[in-house]
Design a protein around this nucleic acid. Sequence first.
RNA 1: GCCGAAGUGGCGGAAUUGGUAGACGCGCUGGAUUCAAAAUCCAGUUCUUGCAAGAGAGUGCGGGUUCGAUUCCCGCCUUCGGUACCA
Length: 956
Amino acid sequence: MDYQAREIEQKWRKEWEERGTYRVSNDDSRPKYYVLDMFPYPSGAGLHVGHPLGYIASDIYARYKRLRGFNVLHPMGYDSFGLPAEQYAIQTGIHPAVATEENIGRYRSQLENLGFSFDWSREVRTSDPEFYRWTQWIFQQLFKHYFDQDAGIAKPIAELEARLAESGNAGLHAAAEDDTPQITAEEWNAMDEREQQLFLLNYRLTFPEESYVNWCSALGTVLSNDEVKDGVSERGGYPVERKLMAQWSMRITAYADRLIDGLEEIDWPVSLKEQQRNWIGRSQGASVRFALQEDADTAIEVFTTRVDTIFGATFMVLAPEHDLVDQITTAEQRAAIDEYRTWAASRSEVERMAEVKKVTGAFTGGYCINPFNGAAIPIYIADYVLAGYGTGAVMAVPSGDQRDWNFATHFDLPIIPILDAQENIAEAADPTKEGKYINSGFINGLTYDEALPKLIAFSEEKGIGKGKVQYRLRNAVFSRQRYWGEPVPAYWEGDVPRLVPEDELPLVLPAVDKYLPTETGEPPLGRAEDWKYKGKYDYELSTMPGWAGSSWYWYRYMDPKNEERFASADAVDYWQGVDLYVGGSEHAVGHLLYSRFWNHFMHDLGLVPNREYAKKLINQGMIQGVIEFLKMQKEKVDGNSRFVCADIAKEEEAQGVEFAQIPIHVDYVQDYGTDKSYVNLDSIKKFLDWRPEYKNAIFDCGNGTYQSGVFTPNTDAQESHLVTVSEVGKMSKRYYNVVNPDDVVARYGADCFRMFEMFLGPIEQAKPWNTTSISGTSRFLNNFWRLFFRDGKWLVTEEEPTKDEMKVLHTAIKKVSDDVERFAFNTCVSAFMVATNDLNKMKCHKRAILEPLLVLMAPFAVHMTEELWAKMGHDTSVHHADWPALEEKWLVEENVTYPIAINGKTRATVDFPADSSKADLEAAAPDLAEIQKYLDGKTIRKIIVVPGRMINIVVG
RNA sequence: GCCGAAGUGGCGGAAUUGGUAGACGCGCUGGAUUCAAAAUCCAGUUCUUGCAAGAGAGUGCGGGUUCGAUUCCCGCCUUCGGUACCA
């Protein structure tokens, strides 16, 4: 009898739960290891086969580490605040907590189906008040600290207050708002408490401010930059506009340098680190002041990474919102400038993105002076200069910058070459630094490297510029005008924000009658009744963004029930941080950046031991689905829809007929995923039952037409089919291609599902799901089972293994040990298959071979190996044994088969004793009969021997 | 445009420091079993050529280093992912 997956898997899952097999203790003498998965948002749709990929990989590694003698923490929880539950609540009136609870239940049962070794007693949920109490607490710590740039760490705001009282903020190096005024100690001390509090907001690591935000009116909320894609909301695809609003903000920019430098010490994928670096966007340059021609006391400050090009600056461009625009604009140009500014402000983000190539702008009529050569250059405004980056002003060098070149060409401004190596600047800008300077005053004739120190010396001497580091990274908007999130634990005493006292946390999300903004445009929390601090002050009404709870959650798993602290100092000290983190790369510049920021901050406060919380990170690739489309003509034919074969559609498209692609359920498609996928007439009938709106549609199959249940052939064909279009893409409800792991598990078992997902290919690669090839993995598991059982008979014997059998075992031990360490789980599965096939061929059923093999496979086929382990007579409450030790001696061969190459080309193979020395081989090689026929009268010139590997004979 | 990663049979993919390219699996072909089918088992399967033994070609393209290159170097091409008026 074959392996009965369902029965055995259920039995063991029950057993594990009853025994608490996967409970982890914080009090253990073994070395610790922490394997973390990115916790899921429990959506209503449940899991598809792509979701568990990373969980399977991490589970295998966690189990492997346990067998290697580690105390392994491998928890799971839910990132349970989020927009979908809220939108569902808006539609149905069901409290998001209720819907979320239900979704979590579904997730939990789907996850439990797969045999993970999670310690469920440590489960966390970000929407649980006992959890978000600490999210709120960390928020308050951020409010209570500022960033000292000299020390490079966060410090209590009280220290800053003391400093201000003593010497004002002159010479203070602290991360602050750009427009923070300079004050003296006297001025500070003369301020009243309110004024002091407002002043301190310039320094606090989280603070409310008026800022431009991505406002999405359809969703009724503000979105972060990474929630906006191509000018529309990532979720729902609604338009997003820029709007000035009072928002809580996180001063992540204070940590920009540390977030870049910290990447050096962590083992994360190169591309992910690169994404973070680009996102932070550190650029080294200089800021230079260009005085106005009309008013020498006022200067426009610009940021440039190429001071060397300054002699080629032929005009200046300001952002339309720039503060000096009004002052600069002349009476004649006033109307044109106002018109342009109005137009620019009305332009939506989408339009701006779409019309990047279009050159727009207006002349202010004003001029400023190039401080390096005294030239007067005209000042323009244009919306290609962003108010939010640098100083919102650019010195335009059209010969070296393509955007400046486009602008200059459009407005007929001069383009001055500045390097003798610049080519074709009449056609396009040349941004290279090659050659020697021309038209560049005192740096003429120098190269870039020679000119730079001279430029710096000049600008410092004249006091016109200084070196500056500019970041692309902005402070993170932290407020969301939503209901289903952590309430920001603050209240407003007039215009001064104050923290809710620590002992009153958690500030629990109040009940509301509706989940929509109020009539006056306040967030949903504005609907809560009697929700005022001490019945007197207004609570902050916004909630935290989705990334708040996920920015520290790994610490909560260490000590999930703690009521005194986010996790006890002992627990944090024992577990330290995450050793292996597994999750998707889509979080590269969201969660993975914000969580590093919070962790750096927590480290500054001495709360956690490491600056970087996750030593190693692996991105699992997405599992994609096959999407099948029918080609439907956009225009109806005689009032009916017309579907045609993909190849016919192609021909007709060439003639200008337009087609739409209608996704069709993959189950209806034969040979799906291939280039000859099609639906036959039976499937068309099924399709019509499913989509009755097409019931009279015409199906043009090339050799006939199908309509209303009748096939009319136009050749003598009796059968026909309609060729579909296949694509590989997201697994999603709208493409009818979602594969539910429950279905796969029901048919093949969880062990098979786990091994198959690993077998699909390298973990970090995206790959399409293909259910048909799972049969190979299923066959393999049956073959493995048959090493132990055949027809219900136990086959395992106590015989001594032979040398060949030992070799099979130790080859597998070596391969799997090496490959698990480098997360190459696909080749591990191959190694198991090879060993199983070999042993079956040898009819080897010996305990001495099978037992270690069982341990080797235990992290992969978790239920089957447990069953067999018990059958072997072992105690399963002690989880397996130690990882089998590799004895290399079994891999040593008596004879080694050497490939013999003549001039690098392999011509024969010959066996030599394994202990042959290099000299032996060199001596024996020329006389081999195998090579004589290739010599062909030529002489042997050289013999190259790599012992154990190959022999190459050079003739000529 | 910029940044990053990757190109190997019909397909997913192996080949850890340069050493018999294509492990393992799917698919396909043939056979066994069966009244038949499914399932299972056995054999074959990079391409070209040949009845066969064999011969030749072959890891995106073009060069280079080497006795020997999927692997190292130079120059291209293509695909995927990220990002974009960031000065």
